[in-house]
Design a protein around this nucleic acid. Structure first.
Lengths: 298, 298
DNA sequence: ATGTCTTACGGAAGACGTAATAATA
DNA sequence: TATTATTACGTCTTCCGTAAGACAT
């Protein structure tokens, strides 16, 4: 019986419907059923009378609802209050970014932001591609400048802040390295280096498509954990990787070459926020970053 | 931030000492440190000012303590109250047993128990050796009749209720099957079939020793998930297994033989209870079982 | 030197999704 | 038959222990 189970129980007690409960909590009905069942084993009695058509609280269920709802609210609000106080009193804003060029904008924004909000400290940290949304979900940061697309139920993606043309990172010995530009169709001939970690399918398919626009399959290359490994893998001739053209300025090294795409759509970047709570400082920071990016287009 | 983390935080806030906190919660100091650190990341500020010699609550820590302690108590007590009510009102006592002969005693006790406590329903269920303490820990049963030794910090082991001599389960084609008795020393020549699941080392070493009393190593055989598989594995000649002599009455089948040990100490059985809460019905049931076992020694 | 907290790493338990099944209308 | 709840099973995350390191007295 952890807080998550209690949340599931309380939600089901309100909705009296497994599928709706699941939807509200962004999980599957199966999970709701499993959680309720284990709580019933724990308590030692049924909490809901249910058929496939009706769900009703039992007496024990009502009793438990009365016992838990207040304490649950108190804990959730308490955590939120203390987090908010930590942000207020220290005036702390925690921001993550995914790539060095996104980081540049964040740091630059921070410089301006400080003059307007001297009461607010801004913590900046890099986010690993392998755990794109983890820090945001765990509430460890308030704002994240990230590649799009992002379509997550519990995350709000703000407007596009800036765009980046794309290039292909290839071994310098590879024939493609001689060309002025490459096409998405060229990917059919070279293995793509992939992240080893689990990412949403739409993110993977966007950045590392499985097929060219013409429909030809793109081979899969070795996997990496930290982005830095991609450079080594490419230099070793084990594969290629589509990147922002700007990566050439930050990640150039012997053995690799960056060849611009002639036909790949630009990468889009924007700010992600946890869906529930709009944070005044965070909004101000995002707006300021937007202005800055507009005033100095790449 | 689940209830477990909150428990760790609240305990540390009281103890102001990582190792003592760990001891109270039956975990390692490392775990306490990890949990606190992740909560601090979540909240966005330090909760404790600490060196290796002193631990003090920060202002934010005190604030959080005030916010969480009440709600936490309320939830824990609420769950306990509803569980207790479920046991009271339905008069429910849930009892687990590990082996058929333990089950026999439990069912027999239940028959007598019913006449004295007609208000109390007794649920009986078998416990898999592969998850010896899980049901008890999760609060799914109130009492468990089990093999000893049991030395778990969060479980109370009552007095020994009955004993069982031991025998070796061997393939009927094996030379040992011809003998009248076997010795623990004979184990040096035959692989022991082992449970695949994780069990406390002292339990494993007691039931399936790695060495004979004389110090000779005992080979390891294949593993099983459900006890029933042991019979098939032995019948297939893949190994042997020490068991209670009584197993011969319950589990005999073609291809296997039970040969009594001449020198193995008897197995002991007793009742396990979750450490915190002594349950009146449970105590009465255990006492009754004890009487019954005494009155009809095996 | 010793007791205490922290970090890195690995293994096991638990959360959760997918897919197939059962049950109600 | 359509909708909903449950179960079986597999995968991935997270919990937690071990062991080694860093600090303070």
């Amino acid at each position: 019986m952890e807080l998550r189970d209690i949340e599931i129980f309380l939600t089901l007690a309100q909705e009296l419907h497994f599928s709706r409960t699941a939807k509200r909590l962004h999980v599957t009905p199966a999970r709701v059923s499993q959680s309720i069942k284990s709580q019933e084993r724990r308590i030692g009695t049924l909490l809901f009378d249910r058929t496939t058509r009706t769900v009703r609280l039992t007496a024990a269920g009502e009793h438990l609802y009365r016992e838990l709802s207040v304490g649950y609210e108190q804990i959730i609000n308490g955590i939120e209050a203390v987090s908010a106080a930590a942000r207020q009193s220290t005036g702390l804003l925690r921001i993550g970014y995914s790539t060095p060029w996104a980081g540049d904008l964040v740091f630059q924004t921070r410089k301006n932001f400080r003059t307007r909000h001297p009461e607010c400290t801004v913590h900046v940290q890099e986010i690993q591609f392998s755990d794109m949304f983890g820090s945001l979900r765990r509430g460890e940061i308030d704002l994240q400048l990230s590649e799009y697309p992002v379509r997550e139920a519990d995350i709000t993606a703000g407007p596009v802040i800036f765009c980046e043309p794309r290039a292909l990172l290839v071994p310098s010995s590879h024939p493609l390295a001689e060309q002025d530009t490459v096409s998405l169709e060229d990917l059919a001939g070279v293995p793509l280096i992939r992240p080893g970690a689990q990412l949403p399918p739409y993110v993977l398919e966007y950045h590392l498509p499985s097929h060219t626009p013409a429909g030809r399959p793109i081979p899969q290359g070795p996997t990496y954990t930290y982005w830095h490994e991609v450079l080594s893998l490419v230099a070793a001739g084990l594969g290629v990787s589509p990147v922002a053209t700007r990566a050439a300025e930050h990640h150039n090294r012997p053995g690799v070459a960056f060849v611009p795409f002639s036909d790949a759509p630009h990468l889009h970047y924007g700010f992600l926020k946890p869906a529930p709570l709009p944070n005044a400082h965070a909004l101000a920071f995002a707006a300021l970053a937007h202005e800055l990016a507009e005033s100095q287009p790449t």
